[in-house]
Design a binder for these strands. Structure first.
Length: 767
DNA sequence: TACTAAGCTCTTTTT
DNA sequence: GAGCTTAGTA
């Protein structure tokens, strides 16, 4: 299709040549290799808008993404282009789209329509139960390890039978002293099926099975989806690859978008070969390369290229930008993570005021979720609003999972994990002994545990416990019948009241108790909103709500676009996002690159791609920060700067800005052997009044804390006292100054080695 | 069966 | 440090 100059529809305005070509090539297989910041999302959304404008039925367009955030972003952008028609698109994550299809076709696979989706906790709990039942050593068969192996089997479409038939697998397991693994896998699969439950991987595996084994169903969906688009194709794993290939087999209109330099999900089975081999699968493929970066300054783009070129495996690609050179990348090294966080918070504060920027212009990116703490604290103290993505989400909280377990059981009584969670919560005198018996009977009779619970007396030889189990069953049955006639909110509220869940949380006036109560109320409000939401065309059933809870793992509180806050997230979550100012923090060897990633899979290249993703999030200003020591597992450990800092071409780096210790960064490269540079003899000050919270009861190796000291009277602290500080470990008081609550102690901490770190601190315990 | 204190283990990224 | 398990007690 060709347009005259003045003929170009307005929605195609502002596309460069490569982007326009990629948009207009709507038929046949298309591969778009899109460098970071090259307008990939723009191309995808405009392409969909273009299809719709050309008369394609939105219901015939399937667009798959990896994260909910990406799906949401894309939906809102398309809505701006084509209006409400965007709602009819089949757009979402692999998991949410396939779950939707599987619900329609569940009977074909022998699953109930209301099948449950097990989250990682459910899966691990089930594995733990199975390992216990089989009498295996739970030190060898650790739930996370077992689940990890099961997951990678599923991602490669190896079922329990196929696994057990492969002698190589069995030999490998035997050598690793886990020869029963295949039996655990088999039991796990059977148990999930019996519970009417799919785990995350099952959603993919079963989707594949559905298309493979049911030709009529496969045919239906193949014809339905005339156009298929896959975002982040470099992150697809084998089963995802097989599904999309099959779905596209009839129309062959498949467009994949990706960047091999941003492949960061090998740990969950992503196969970079999928994108590298795309042209082999579709010889007539049209390839478009988007190489102009519109997002970042020259310094950032060039720095990113200078790092990624250390990787061997990559597609040919030259990312460039016409943007300003911009500022150099700042490198900052602090003493501890707390100081690192304070630096970032203060820097955000200054930049904000200097350049009149909103909070949402800033993002702090880290390798692991646990690193968020220090930054939360620093930002809170600086009075800067922030939001944390990921980590323990709202739906992972105990009180939320408890109430949701009731709802899950109502919808799908065969859900074993939900049943086990609540059968004795709140306590109703049904202990482990009874529960184990029920589960055992279920296994004996090859029925779901609920069947036993609902008919205890038929199976019962358990005396008075039977009465209590029966009462529980009666209560659940009343909820189930109520579900027929009431909406999700009324039912949830009824359950929360009837089970005294709400009341007991309300009566708990501890800080945690209050927050648990508030969370539960919030969940109820969330259900109410879901029920009353007219926007979405989805049915307002409880089953749909539970599906959202299981698959939309991001915190609903984080989705308010109006809220002006600094974003804190892992680099994985930052994929596809961009911010004017970015701080990539915790750049220390063994943390980023991660020790585990290097030792278990030797994935330095993937870690480097992750670093590449991190720095290409920044539009104009980028800071790389690290600490010289960090508390890990409760111990203060020295840290070396990440090798990735070294890999950035130094002409793009500014090592002399605020707080930078150039010689600090150089220390590692000097081979001086010491990880703590001399210049860290400096002082810290904290008010004595913060002490109270920090005094903890003595353990057996320490004498009791002086009660007067607990009262906050610093006068008892004398030179020579041995103290313990929560961050810096053990040390000795060298000097005392000031009076009362303002009294300061200068302490030398031995944890920091020969190099003395002098602190003025009151947050400590006397030994 | 329920509750508490002490002891042990594991630390990555996501749907 | 946190989360979980175990042992001991009510």
């Amino acid at each position: 299709m060709h347009f005259q100059e003045d003929d170009i529809p307005p929605y195609l305005d502002g596309l460069n040549e490569a982007q326009l070509k990629a948009v207009l090539q709507t038929e046949g297989p298309v591969m778009i290799i899109a460098g970071a910041g090259s307008g990939k999302t723009k191309v995808l959304t405009v392409r969909m808008a273009h299809l719709i404008r050309q008369g394609a039925d939105p219901f015939s367009i399937l667009s798959l993404t990896f994260t909910n955030k990406a799906a949401r972003e894309m939906r809102s952008r398309i809505e701006k282009l084509v209006g409400p028609a965007a709602r009819s698109l089949w757009m979402g994550t692999f998991h949410s789209i396939f779950a939707r299809i599987l619900r329609m076709e569940a009977d074909r696979l022998g699953y109930p329509k209301n099948f449950t989706i097990y989250d990682t906790d459910d899966s691990k709990s089930l594995i733990k139960t199975i390992v216990k039942e089989m009498g295996l050593d739970d030190k060898v068969y650790k739930p996370s390890m077992v689940l990890g192996r099961i997951s990678s089997c599923k991602n490669n479409l190896i079922d329990p039978l196929g696994y057990a038939e492969n002698t190589e697998n069995l030999l490998q397991d035997k050598n690793a002293n886990r020869s029963k693994f295949h039996e655990v896998y088999k039991a796990y699969a059977e148990r999930c099926f019996r519970s009417g439950a799919m785990d995350f991987d099952d959603i993919l595996v079963n989707m594949h099975k559905l298309l493979r084994d049911h030709i009529d169903v496969c045919n239906k969906w193949q014809h339905k989806f005339r156009y298929i688009m896959v975002d982040e194709y470099q992150d697809t794993n084998h089963v995802q690859y097989m599904i999309t290939k099959r779905l596209a087999a009839v129309n062959q209109n498949i467009a994949v978008v990706g960047d091999d330099a941003q492949s960061i999900y090998a740990f969950r089975g992503a196969n970079i070969q999928n994108i590298l081999n795309f042209s082999k699968d579709y010889p007539e493929v049209k390839v478009f390369k988007l190489e102009q970066n519109y997002r970042s300054t020259q310094h950032i783009v060039n720095a990113a290229s200078s790092v990624i070129k250390h990787n061997k495996k990559q597609l040919e690609k030259e990312v460039w930008t016409a943007n300003e050179p911009g500022e150099k990348i700042r490198v900052v090294r602090s003493i501890t993570e707390a100081e690192e966080a304070r630096f970032v918070a203060q820097n955000i504060f200054e930049e904000k005021n200097l350049n009149q920027l909103p909070n949402k212009a800033f993002a702090v990116l880290y390798r692991t979720n646990s690193q968020s703490r220090a930054f939360e604290e620093a930002l809170r103290k600086a009075n800067i609003d922030y939001r944390i993505y990921g980590g323990t989400s709202f739906y992972q909280r105990k009180e939320i999972k408890d109430l949701i377990a009731y709802l899950r059981l109502v919808i799908n009584p065969t859900d074993e994990e939900a049943l086990k969670r609540i059968i004795n919560y709140p306590a109703r005198q049904i202990g482990d002994t009874t529960v184990n018996k029920l589960v055992y009977l279920a296994g004996e009779n090859h029925v779901p545990v609920w069947d036993i619970v609902a008919n205890v007396r038929q199976y019962s030889d358990m005396g008075s416990a039977a009465l209590r189990v029966d009462n529980f069953a009666m209560m659940m049955k009343s909820f189930m019948s109520m579900a027929q006639s009431h909406n999700a909110y009324d039912l949830a509220m009824h359950i929360a009241r009837q089970t005294t869940l709400l009341k007991s949380l309300y009566e708990d006036k501890t800080v945690e108790g209050v927050s648990r109560y508030e969370n539960t109320v919030e969940l109820l409000n969330g259900i109410k909103e879901f029920v009353e939401d007219d926007e979405s065309d989805k049915e307002k059933t409880l089953a749909n709500f539970l599906e959202e809870v299981a698959l939309y793992t991001d915190d609903p509180k984080n989705q308010d676009p109006e809220r002006d806050s600094v974003s804190l997230m892992t680099i994985h979550q930052a994929k596809g996002l961009e911010y004017p100012h970015v701080y990539v923090v915790g750049l220390e060897e063994n943390l980023f690159p991660s020790q585990l990633s290097l030792s278990s899979r030797n994935e330095l290249e993937e870690e480097r791609r992750l670093f590449y993703v991190a720095i290409t999030r920044a539009e104009s200003k980028l800071s790389l920060t690290c600490a010289t020591s960090r508390f890990r597992y409760g111990n203060l450990t020295p840290c070396e700067p990440s090798r990735f800092i070294e890999e950035v071409d130094s002409q793009y780096l500014d090592m002399n800005l605020a707080g930078l210790k150039r010689e600090g960064v150089h220390n590692r490269f000097d081979n001086s052997g010491s990880s703590l540079p001399n210049r860290f003899e400096r002082s810290y000050t904290t008010r004595a009044s913060t002490l109270l919270k920090q005094v903890t009861p003595p353990n057996n190796s320490l004498p009791p804390v002086d009660p007067d000291f607990v009262e906050g009277d610093m006068n008892l602290l004398k030179v020579g006292h041995k103290v313990q500080h929560q961050r810096f470990g053990f040390g000795e008081v060298k000097e005392i100054e000031g009076e009362g609550a303002n009294r300061k102690a200068t302490v030398f901490f031995d944890a920091l080695g020969e190099k003395k770190l002098v602190l003025k601190f009151a947050k400590m315990r006397i030994l």
